[in-house]
């Protein structure tokens, strides 16, 4: 039990000696500090509990049937070695990454809906056929974006036409971490992230001058600011919201510098629109106006400058034409008067 120094007969303001009085004051201060810390702790605990409760509403991993799964799958070391391929299969779920993913509202059983009630799971459980396109169609009313168009693109992609073994949505996209580009991400981050997906498999390209890219000046600089997909998808039918999933073979890919290094670049438009918005947020309107439509070769595609330049040239042509015509008229008048 805590005893207030004021109630302690050995202390209090009746103390005679200065030293005794100082000790009592120190105790008083210490107690006040303790009380403050305790209330602060209580407040913060309540706040974090509130936040947790709120997260619980949002995160599918905190739903009741997910908790059983997460008892094991939250562990970073959760993995097994596949007997056939000898590869380590990671079974760990990064809770933080999941919380930020597009699927964060889903409980484990929303997708993994059969064969997992037994523990340890049966080997046949791993054969579940998860279909992104179908699932998204079924859940369209819940806000799941329709992936049919994307699937048509994918079916034309080199990954399908070349019959790459075991290739599926999951070869590139991890549904437990997948999230769209957020406004706060820099271009470099977006590019690094999307290119990382390609380079996870295409490790042969991790060289200073990657195979097949010898024609490209400063390949590393390009790879730092341009997505692989910007060149390796068709020019036609692009939309700003997402890159095409029709990944082209090397020989069909875009190699025309001018497609990027010019105004109205179709290759860069997707990322560029994003970049424009970001630049406006970061640099403000004026800087954005100056850098508007910037490209690398020439780098001056500013429509205002072009219009002013062309306008002045046109006015000058009109001016000298009028001058010339007036001279001609004067000359004719003189001729006739003679």
């Amino acid at each position: 039990m805590l005893v207030s120094p004021l109630s302690d007969p050995r202390s209090g303001f009746s103390c005679l000696a200065y030293g005794q009085c100082g000790t009592a004051l120190r105790r008083l201060l210490l107690l006040a500090l303790l009380a403050l810390t305790a209330s602060a702790f209580a407040l913060s605990t309540a706040a974090s509990y509130g936040a947790a409760a709120q997260t619980a509403k949002k995160s599918g991993l905190l739903k009741e049937d997910s908790r059983d799964c997460m008892r094991c799958h939250w562990m970073e070391t959760m993995a097994y070695r596949d007997r056939e391929t000898g590869k380590i299969v990671n079974l760990s779920i990064d809770r933080d990454a999941y919380r930020h993913s597009v699927h964060h509202e889903l409980a484990c059983s929303d997708c993994h809906d059969r064969g997992y009630s037994h523990y340890p799971h049966r080997t046949s459980s791993a054969d579940e056929a998860l279909q992104c396109v179908e699932c998204h169609e079924e859940r369209e009313d819940d806000g799941a974006p329709n992936l049919v168009g994307l699937h048509h693109e994918y079916e034309k992609s080199v990954h399908v036409t070349e019959e790459v073994e075991d290739f599926s949505c999951f070869s590139c996209h991890n549904p437990h971490t997948f999230h769209p580009v957020s406004a706060g991400e820099s271009i470099a981050q977006v590019v690094a992230e999307t290119n990382g997906t390609c380079l996870d498999c295409h490790t042969e390209l991790l060289t200073p001058v990657p195979k097949g890219h010898e024609w490209l000046p400063r390949p590393q600089a390009h790879w730092g600011s341009v997505r692989c997909l910007d060149c390796h998808t068709p020019l036609e039918g692009r939309i700003t919201e997402r890159p095409s999933h029709n990944v082209l073979a090397a020989e069909d890919s875009n190699q025309l510098c001018v497609e990027c290094h010019s105004k109205g670049s179709a290759l860069l438009s997707q990322l560029y629109n994003y970049r424009t918005e970001q630049a406006r947020d970061e640099k403000g309107f004026f800087a954005q106006a100056i850098y508007n439509d910037a490209y690398i070769v020439g780098m001056t595609r500013n429509p205002w400058m072009d219009w002013i330049g062309l306008g002045v040239i046109l006015l000058m042509i009109l001016g000298v034409a009028a001058h010339g015509y007036a001279r001609y008229r004067f000359h004719r008048e003189q001729e006739t008067s003679k």
């Binding site: 850098y291 910037a294 690398i296 020439g298 780098m299 001056t300 400058m305 330049g309 002045v312 040239i313 000058m316 042509i317 000298v320 001058h323 010339g324």
Partner: peptide
């Protein structure tokens, strides 16, 4: 830097194009 150079190059080029028109006339 490249942007500054580009703008200078462009503006001077516009001015010289203007000179060419006037000169020719």
């Amino acid at each position: 830097t490249v942007w500054i150079i580009a703008i200078v190059h462009l503006v001077v080029a516009w001015m010289l194009a203007l000179f060419l028109i006037v000169h020719s006339y």
